[in-house]
Design a protein around this nucleic acid. Structure first.
Lengths: 198, 198
DNA sequence: CCATTTTTGGACCCGCCAGTCCAAACCCAC
DNA sequence: GTGGGTTTGGACTGGCGGGTCCAAAAATGG
């Protein structure tokens, strides 16, 4: 069992580990640094995460995955007007601009995400919830006659989401939100257009 | 200086290292594995790459960066008709589908790309050449009256490229080209549309 | 052939860091 | 308080793997 104190320690470790990853990246992620930052000892780490580093990384991934979508609310859950789509767009840009050059999720996605099935599941789950929220928004707009009715909602959401991920990747690499904004605007532009001529 | 034999050994090492990264990822990249695969010894590695692992990784990055654009030719250099844009699109999808679950560039981009300025430069250079090729194509099409004249060519290219990168990221993570195709189609759709109503 | 330079083999070193272990401190229920 | 648990400290281990080194083999060039 876990007492209240244990609970606190555990979450302090997860939060500290998340910060550590944000600052140094997964490659440079050392248990020792987490210990120093959170004022805990080896035995504590392995007490709360018996499977060690991998399990801790997974806990961090879950922790961060929740934040990603939460930070986009309430816009993401109510994409029923063009105004809310644009507010969502701005929020995404803002969120990632703040987070700057490090996004724990994207990192996990590129690394552990490929390896361990657990982390893979976390990432996949996050992405499918995200995509579904976008697709729901597309359907709403189409029903209201405000969005290109020829679009397949799921496919459009997938394309837009890919743009966001790619944009974040550019942000992480060159530290500029330009590509992220361009991808969002291009994607929204495609959705807005009422007809194609090809 | 480098004799012919030395040249051969050196490129054998780079090629072997690239394969190794493709198969196991950067995290699992061990000099020992490269040695085994290329039948070379430690002293050879450090003879041709005195700065060790980092320098070898950089050489691999350069090697792969060249391939990325070369594999998109001749389409990428001649985006003057819708037909060539679509052939380019198909080529990109095809190329990455073949490459499957591992793309040395995307990996380097996420990892070393952030750390060493050298790798950063390689990635940035690749992306800007890529983006410029796309932008040139957009300008051509606009001049021919075949593409939405309101688009900023550079910005549209940036958005499309972000979509490609994000799509590849999805491919690497979940092993499916759906997002890549969706992003390309969404981006091309935005370019194709002749007018917006907002 | 000889001298010089390049190429190669592989043993060795060493730092780093995940993971183990034991015993002490602490908390809580009864 | 006393006996069960949980929580904590921190020393220790072990291996992995990057990097060093020396000396032998092979090429090169005159």
């Amino acid at each position: 069992m876990l007492t209240r104190k244990g609970e606190q320690t555990r979450s302090r470790i997860v939060a500290g580990a998340a910060d550590e990853i944000r600052e140094r990246g997964v490659d440079e992620f050392r248990l020792e640094d987490v210990m120093a930052r959170t004022r805990t000892s080896k035995s504590q780490l392995f007490h709360y995460f018996p499977d060690g580093k991998e399990q801790l990384l997974l806990a961090v991934a879950r922790h961060e995955a929740d934040r990603v979508l939460a930070d986009q609310q309430p816009m993401l859950g109510d994409l029923t007007t063009w105004e809310s789509w644009h507010r969502w767009r701005d929020r995404v840009v803002e969120r990632y601009r703040e987070q700057g050059t490090d996004c724990p999720m994207s990192i996990v996605l590129g690394h552990a995400g490929r390896r361990t099935p657990g982390a893979q599941a976390v990432v996949t789950g996050l992405m499918s919830r995200w995509q579904e929220a976008l697709a729901t928004g597309v359907r709403h707009m189409q029903a209201a006659g405000e969005m290109n009715p020829e679009l397949d909602p799921g496919r459009a959401a997938a394309g837009l989401l890919a743009g966001v991920q790619g944009g974040v990747l550019f942000l992480l690499t060159i530290g500029d939100t330009g590509h992220l904004e361009a991808a969002l605007d291009l994607g929204l532009g495609a959705m807005r257009s009422q007809r194609n001529d090809s």
